[in-house]
Structure formats: structure tokens, C-alpha cells
Simulated scan of single mutants.
Amino acid sequence: VSCDAIPEATVLTATDNCNSEVTVVYLEEQTGQEEGCASEYTITRTWTVQDCAGNVTSHTQVITVEDNEAPELVSTLEDITIECDNVPEVPTLEFVDNCSPNVTQTSFEETSTFDGTDSDYTITRTWTVTDDCGNVAEFVQNITVTVKTSVTEIADSKCIDDGEINLNDYLANQSEEGTWEVTQGNVVLSEDGSFDPSNLSLGDYVFTYTSPNNGCLSSTIVTININDDCVVLPCGQEDVVISKAVTPNGDSWNEFFEITGVESCGFVANVKIFNRWGAKVFESNNYANDWNGVSDGSTFGGAKRLPAGTYYYIVILENSGLKPFTGAIYLGTK
């Protein structure tokens, strides 16, 4: 019988042809229990009766107790469909066994069919557990994931005599798995994402960079206007000074993210600032050195003070002929 289905001992009575009253003596013994599997054993039940003349009669029942049922899941575990930016953390599950007091999780495995494209994929989570007697159970959750793509759009203009253009200079975060694609214009990109504009027709060229991002996709669309408005500039790349830290604490030091050194050149600065997940937290097409760590509301649905940490910027000086400036900025609160 199963360990949770052991029958109660039957109460037996006896009669004797000479003695009007005889007493049945009941004895129960358990044997064969192993230290690692205490829920498998043998019960021997013996009923013995003896009359006054010493005549003895006995009856024996042998019950073999087995534990052959695997543990069961107590927690709720359901297959779900979810968007890629809302995949739940791995839950802590609770298991129970009908016989063994201990249930041990022997393994957990998570696999994903995400291929870096916008196709839906499946995350499969598998828990394997066993009871004290080696009965094994496996519980599986399938999560169907729909892919979302976060898009960042950047516009710039370049003169045909500006030299080679490297599209990676426009990226806040470059991924080893990311790829560039020409979506508008007749231009061939090199393997490192660069091209020479000197022989191109004037006009707009559009490039799209797509990369996986924690099971989702990130897309950067760069539109570059190739023109022939080349101007000899009085200001160079080395003259531009960009803040490395912003600490808006009222001490008059590093209160704002500043771009200095080229004030006399008359450049208009386009600024985008991203958090470490690639989400845009600030943008200005005519930046006035006035960002102090407050989100402009485009990401969080309303202006708010951002937490301390490392952020990443893209600075484009319009009509400067200079490459975009990218780098890290530390936002502190003290």
C-alpha cells in the first residue's frame, strides 16, 4: 500500500470451546526502514490468543508500505504570454509530498528561443524535484514573449568634404550583436559601419541600427543630410569641453551638464541623454547648458528627478562639421 493509505488495525475477537472468555493480544512491528527513505517499510501485525490449557492460536498480517508517488506543486505556475520588457522574475516555488517530509529541488533550467529578431519567442523554465525515496517530478512553465522595439531617432547633416562618417559615433551603447542597415539612399557601408560621403549624391540618407536588449530590441534611426555647404571652421573637435559629472546640490559646482569651449562659434547643440538601459531621459534641440538631472518626461510620463548613476550622452553641434560627441556622465546628488 501507499504510505498514506495504511489501513487501521482490525480488532479481532476469539472464542474457545472450553473457556468462555479469552483475550486477544495484538502486536505490531515495523522493519526495513532505511535512513534515506523512511516512508518505505514493512508492518507485521500479529494477533495471538491462548486459552487456560495453553492452546495458542495466532493470525499474522504483513503490510508492505511503498512510496511511489512524486512530489506535487503547491504554488501556482501557469503558462503566460507577456511583452519582452515585462518578463517576470523566476518565482520561488513550494512543493509537497504525500509521504516524505523533505522535497529537494535538484535542478532549475531556463532556455530561450530569442533569435535577435522581432519574432515572438518562448522562455521555458523547468524545475526538477525529488522526495526522500527518489521519486522525481518535473514542472514546466512556458512564457510566450512578444518583442517590442524601442526606437531612437537622430538627425545630422554632413558636408561631402567632411571625410569618412562612422555611424557608430551616433550610438549611446554599441552591442556586439547589433547590425547597421541602409534604409534610404544608395550607399555602401563598410563592416565597421562607416562610409565616405565624397562621391555621394546630395540629400538625405537613412540608416537603422538594430540590437538585442534584454530580450527586446533597440533601434537607432540615423538620418544624415549630405550637403556641399562646407565651411572652414574656427573651432575644432579638441576645443569642445563636455561635463563629466553633474551634482545639483546647490554648492555652485557642477550644477549643470555643460558644453563649453566653442561659445564663439555659434553652434546650436542638439543633446540627448540616456540611462544605462538605453532609455532616453532628456532631449534638447537647442541646448542651453541647463540640464541638472531632471527627466523631461518623455520616458517617465512626467518630469522628475533622476536617480544617481551613470548616464550616456550624444551631443551634435549643428553645422559644425564635427563628429557627434558621445560619452558617459555621472549624475550625483551629494
Score class of each variant (00 low, 15 high):
1 V>R: 02
4 D>I: 00
4 D>K: 05
5 A>G: 06
10 T>S: 12
14 A>I: 04
15 T>C: 06
16 D>V: 02
18 C>V: 14
20 S>L: 14
27 L>V: 10
29 E>S: 09
30 Q>W: 14
31 T>V: 11
37 C>A: 02
43 I>K: 00
57 T>E: 11
58 S>Y: 05
65 V>N: 05
67 D>I: 03
72 E>W: 05
72 E>K: 10
76 T>P: 06
78 E>V: 10
88 P>Q: 07
89 E>Q: 12
91 P>R: 00
98 N>K: 15
98 N>W: 02
99 C>P: 01
100 S>I: 00
103 V>F: 09
112 S>P: 02
113 T>E: 00
123 I>H: 01
124 T>W: 00
128 T>R: 05
132 D>M: 03
135 N>H: 08
135 N>Y: 01
136 V>N: 07
141 Q>E: 07
146 T>Y: 00
147 V>W: 06
148 K>G: 04
153 E>T: 12
161 D>S: 11
166 N>E: 14
170 Y>W: 11
172 A>W: 12
175 S>D: 08
178 G>Q: 09
179 T>C: 07
180 W>I: 13
184 Q>S: 14
186 N>S: 14
189 L>D: 05
190 S>A: 15
195 F>V: 10
197 P>A: 10
197 P>D: 11
199 N>Q: 08
202 L>F: 03
205 Y>P: 00
211 S>N: 15
213 N>E: 07
214 N>Q: 04
223 T>E: 11
229 D>N: 14
233 L>C: 13
240 V>L: 11
240 V>Y: 06
242 I>L: 04
242 I>T: 06
246 V>W: 08
255 E>Q: 06
263 E>G: 15
264 S>P: 09
265 C>V: 09
265 C>Y: 07
269 A>C: 10
272 K>I: 10
274 F>N: 02
277 W>C: 06
278 G>E: 03
280 K>I: 07
283 E>Y: 12
287 Y>M: 07
289 N>L: 10
295 S>Y: 05
296 D>P: 00
303 A>F: 09
312 Y>N: 05
316 I>K: 04
317 L>N: 03
317 L>D: 07
319 N>Q: 11
323 K>D: 15
328 A>C: 07
334 K>P: 12
